[in-house]
């Protein structure tokens, strides 16, 4: 297993290099002039040209690429053209925000998937109605779910859950950036509960579609497992139905479900871009969204690198988990 993980992490370097090359090429091919973002709309022609030179935008593209990669290797992504702050500083606060939201969204995805799996395969009209509802929820775009949830839980239910931000209190100066963990570390139930409340709606919006998809795969897997010969044997030996589902069928069905979860995690990253905007969540998604709008290329490239790394690591973890739950899977 260690060798497998080592190889995967080794491949991360290659993936990130080509990802950087791709993002850089797209940035240069696209019609984009970010200098006004940096100097201000009213800047004189001389100021614009001076800034272009200062930012190295007049350099040959290979030189710009080498300069960016050289800095990125040392963790220096340069300065954001929009905010004029060091990008690495901005990422250090935004990465934990996105990871915390993604972690909660993935957890909710699993909870929704496992909870709905049994309902999904219900026979008869009730099952058909439930499947229709699940299909509708899964096909609704995450921004729609996000906006609806704000309307319901913030506006109509009198601010039952917050509509924006990560906390009512801001970050702890010595915090990890993961607000729920920070609340626990500082022994503050008020802060912890507040952070959880802020997490619920965005995590729900990001997880509904993935959760229903997971439920479908799990339900199909459980259904086919329960009709297999070994299930009949287990029943004949007097095993209770619930035990057969929990101890045997669910485990058999979890292999394709985990594979799906890895794919959904990738999609979730893209849906977080929208969800973070709706909830003013100060993460990588909202950062990327605003950076694209103004052509803040160094910020775009840095976020893509980080998200690429997260995606590869996540897939590696899922592969390891697959081998753990299904002995037929061998890591190689």
């Amino acid at each position: 297993m260690l060798s497998f993980v080592g190889k995967r992490l080794g491949s991360l370097v290659v993936v990130l290099f080509f990802l950087t090359l791709l993002v850089f090429t797209l940035g240069k091919v696209a019609d984009s002039d970010p200098v006004r973002t940096y100097v201000g709309v009213n800047a004189s022609v001389e100021a614009v040209e001076a800034a272009r030179e200062e930012l190295g935008l007049d350099d040959p593209i290979p030189v710009q690429f080498a300069s960016f990669v050289g800095g990125a290797v040392q963790g220096d992504f340069g300065v954001s053209l929009a905010s004029k702050r060091p990008i690495s500083d901005e990422l250090s606060t935004r990465l934990p925000a996105t990871l915390e939201l993604a972690g909660w969204a993935l957890t909710l995805t699993v909870l929704i998937g496992v909870s709905l799996a049994s309902l999904y395969s219900r026979p008869g009209r009730i099952g058909a109605v439930l499947r229709f509802v699940f299909f509708s929820a899964a096909s609704a775009p995450s921004f729609l779910i996000a906006m609806l949830s704000v309307l319901v839980f913030y506006k109509w239910l009198g601010g039952m859950l917050p509509a924006a931000g990560r906390s009512s209190y801001g970050p702890y100066d010595d915090g990890t950036g993961f607000y729920v963990i920070d609340g626990i570390l500082h022994a503050s139930p008020t802060y912890t509960w507040d952070a959880i409340q802020h997490l619920l709606l965005p995590a729900l919006a990001a997880s509904v579609g993935a959760g229903v998809a997971l439920a479908r795969v799990l339900a199909d897997g459980i259904s086919s497992s329960l009709s297999s010969p070994w299930a009949r044997t287990a029943r004949a030996l007097g095993e209770r139905e619930g035990t057969i589902v929990r101890r045997h069928a669910l485990r058999n069905a979890s292999s394709p479900a985990l594979s799906l979860l890895a794919v959904q995690a990738g999609f979730m990253v893209s849906s977080l871009v929208v969800v973070e905007q709706v909830f003013s969540w100060n993460g990588l998604g909202s950062y990327l969204s605003s950076a694209i709008g103004v052509g803040d290329f160094p910020a775009i490239a840095a976020v893509c690198l980080i998200l690429g790394a997260v995606y590869v690591v996540l897939n590696t973890l899922v592969d390891v988990a697959l081998a753990a739950v299904d002995p037929r899977v061998r890591l190689s």
């Binding site: 696209a30 002039d33 006004r36 973002t37 103004v294």
Partner: peptide, 10 residues
Amino acid sequence: ESSAYWSSVF
């Protein structure tokens, strides 16, 4: 978007 706009008008 602003960066595309500035790239085109000049």
